[in-house]
Amino acid sequence: MSFRLFLGVLGVALAPLLSMFTIFIAPNSIRVLFWIFGGFCWLVSLLVGSLFWIIWYSATPSGSALQDDLTFAALISVFVQEGFRLLSLWGLANAVQRLESINIRGSARSGMSGSSGQFVLGLGFGTISCLFHSMNVMAAALGPGSPGLEIDGVSHGSPSFYITGAFLSAALTFNHCSWTVILGSSLNKGLKNSWHLPVFVVIAHLLTTGTSLFNDQGSIWPCMISSWVVVIASGAFAFREAGLKGLASAADFHN
């Protein structure tokens, strides 16, 4: 049972990631480099976010309910992540510019121009955040023990803990890709002209993280619905921003 559960969780959580990686990233070595760079940026942003959490944790009275409260740390972490996304997009733009100045035969060869580069970076963000949220859960799914068992009449956690976690991690991968593309295109247009795009990204991110704060209080549905609605909405937004041309250059992964 636990092995089948593990396989299911593995498939749900990692399938989007693996399929996008094999199709878009793996054939192009430059993309692999930027993908890893994106993942590292997310890791650094998580580090900064958790430093804020440590401060909160040591400032609040120990043993109180306030100390275990993640609201402050989660919301700060959202802003830190968006800040790092902006920084890494800026770094990406500079790097791609350099690549293109070297690359005489046109930027298509590097496979990093425009929104395809932003997508690669976003997938890096999404990959590492998805893995960080799901790997330990998957390892725990292999057993021993499983949540949802009733011991002395007390239910220990929700029985659907693993599968909801897997679906939410998968949504996270999609969301990071879309948000990076949206923020990147806003950066290209100039932040002043397209201020609504970063605002949308921050609100969408706050919405998914904010609703996930209610997960341990019984109902998983607010978070599940809002996450997947945000996936569809930001996906559509990102598609509009990238346009058909961006899509074509993203698909041009040969060379």
């Binding site: 890791l43 998580l46 580090l47 976010g49 958790s50 430093l51 959490w53 440590i54 275990d68 993640l70 740390a73 989660a74 972490s77 959202v78 992540q81 955040s129 960080f132 949220h133 330990n136 859960v137 803990f161 909801t164 976690g165 939410l168 991690s169 996270l172 998914t208 993280t209 996930s212 704060l213 997960n215 341990d216 998983i220 978070c223 996450s227």
Partner: peptide, 24 residues
């Protein structure tokens, strides 16, 4: 750097997040 920061700073935070299913 990341071994020590992850062990002492990130991992406790992420463990709490995973337990409560908070997705950052």
């Amino acid at each position: 750097i990341f071994y020590f920061t992850t062990t002492y700073v990130i991992a406790p935070f992420m463990d709490l997040c995973i337990m409560k299913q908070v997705f950052l």
